[in-house]
Amino acid sequence: MKTRARWGKRATFIVGFTLAFAYVFPFFLVFVNSLKLKYDILENPLAIPVQITWENFQQAYTKMNFFRSLTNSIIITFFSVSLLIIFSSMLAYYLARTKTKLSKYIFLILVASMIVPFQALMIPFMARFAQFVSWNNRGALIFFYIGFGVALSTFLYHGFISNIPTEIDEAASIDGASDMVAFWRIIFPMMRPVTATVAIINALWIWNDFLLPRLVLTNESQTLPLSTYLFYGQYSIEYGQAMAGLVLAVIPIVIFYLILQKQFISGISAGAVK
């Protein structure tokens, strides 16, 4: 019995490591090839670089306007996520605490809206908002993200607020705190775990989103996924540059993930059970 268990453990270990290797291998391949000369890539994509070159990175950096794209990505993600947290926590608080028919219906509509695919909206959407977009495309994009993200975020907050006893609100209002003060000073700080979930789920989505920014943003305001797409049409000519571009595009989020790994995992799992 004991040896069987040990063999089982050994088998899991081997399977686990083989899979982990398969999951990261594509990234490794990209990294290795970003350091190679064009000829070496075509010769053997798997080999370790014979002669390391940083030229690919320099070219990719300028071509994709890395610093500008990174700044755009950070600005757009930061403002969208912060505003989503503020608005959806307030909305969820209102809906969870006001036991009227209206708030019940609003909540139902929000939940139902989550199965509407973006594709069902995008055509009238672009026709309707063309002017708004041309006036300030980054602002418009943030506005759209709030609209599309508010349902899920409110849903997550709603579940959490329902578990906070109403006595806390009542105590605050007896002490003379207004609704707003009570919410921001007392309720909101209690919701830190959901806030982390909401922040991570939305940040991952917005940081990596491609379709909406592609429709909305201009060249000057493009985000990292869009600037990576630049290499797409040309990749067959310059493998090395494309690989370097990918490394540059992936590094910020991977670093962020490695630092906040625990929060990522617990945030997503908290979001999954709602």
Partner: peptide
Amino acid sequence: LRTFFFVPNLVGGVVLGVIWQFIFNS
């Protein structure tokens, strides 16, 4: 292991599309 399995999720569809296009095509 968990850290590794989750990594592909961090990158957007376009980035991984380009990565895998390189793998399949080249």
